[in-house]
Design a protein around this nucleic acid. Structure first.
Lengths: 188, 188
DNA sequence: GTCTATAGTATGATAGAC
DNA sequence: GTCTATCATACTATAGAC
């Protein structure tokens, strides 16, 4: 049998970009095939249950990356404005200056909605909890921390959508750099 | 010829719900047909260029409704916190407690992206400008008003996405009721 | 592990009867 | 203005050769 053209990780990386750009319903097997360079039958070798398997692998992989690159650094961070600035920068890197859509958003539309609802909910809650913990650690009482954490999650998702809609290169970056002021405003 | 089953306005109303739920690529002609009760050929009577025509009509109609129900009241509002509270309530009504997705978000994914990019950008800018004008009127300097207006637009889009992702009934409403505090915090 | 070939279905879109 | 019937294409998915 022929040698593998690429590792499964590489395939998934290419699938991720396609699902982010096209959404679940827009990411047809033809587009996924074109993006990976594998014909449909080869994709079915890696993902026996087809598109749903691919999307699941994509979601799991991105979830793991988000944990490592955004959540864990935040959990280990000391309570300071600098930590929030680093958090913002990690988000900028993770979402490629806002040019990569969030799968948690993309997979709540169309046919993907029911399939991935639970995973999406879990990931969003993790982000919110992580922010709330940090803010409590920073001295806010639990109620204030919860409201601010909600604002934080909303800001990330909203900035991604608005960046996409406005098409201004620097929009997402500027919105994220506003995060520290949004969550821990300096006293006026 | 048989009498029309319904006015074009009624047809569009039903199309709106379908595009919001399924996105552009997920809103297949079969689903649009089912939602309206018209067979595909009848839909083509109303919208000769097919799905693209339907989506355009949907986007234009929703844009007009948003102008009337959200933008114009805000433009005529006096500079006060109460006006912001009314603005938030108008958003809650417009987006049906968060259960209706924003087409500006939905149409920036998949095949719709290039087609509607300009319209989406225009609508988002209108909302941002409207908020910035209000905040300047309320006494903020132009730079601060611009930053806060950006936060406002992001908050609306982000709250819609996060509401959908978390599936908590009251999420969007609570996030919108937080808007006045977000944009015009009471002095501590 | 990758390919060609193809099955069966769904898609967007039309023609033409009434 | 609505319908049945249909087209060509694209879709997800699979079988089988190498």
């Amino acid at each position: 049998m022929p040698p593998p053209l690429m590792q499964k990780d590489e395939v998934i990386t290419k699938l991720i970009a396609t699902f982010r750009r096209w959404g679940y319903d827009g990411a047809t097997l033809s587009r996924l095939s074109e993006a990976t360079g594998l014909v449909k039958a080869s994709l079915y070798h890696y993902f026996p249950k087809g598109k749903q398997d691919m999307a699941r692998a994509v979601l799991d992989t991105v979830h793991l990356q988000f944990q490592e690159q955004v959540i864990q650094p935040m959990q280990q961070a000391e309570a300071s404005r600098e930590s929030l600035e680093a958090f913002a920068q990690n988000l900028i890197d993770f979402y490629m200056e806002g040019n990569a859509s969030c799968l948690l958003e993309v997979f709540t539309l169309g046919s993907a909605r029911e399939i991935f609802a639970e995973s999406v909910k879990g990931s969003l809650e993790k982000l919110k909890d992580c922010l709330a913990d940090f803010l409590e650690k920073s001295g806010y009482d639990p109620e204030t921390a919860a409201v601010k954490a909600r604002r934080g999650v909303i800001a990330v998702q909203g900035a991604l959508v608005t960046h996409r809609g406005l098409g201004e290169d620097a929009f997402f970056g500027e919105a994220m750099k506003d995060l520290p002021d949004l969550l821990m405003p300096r006293d006026p």
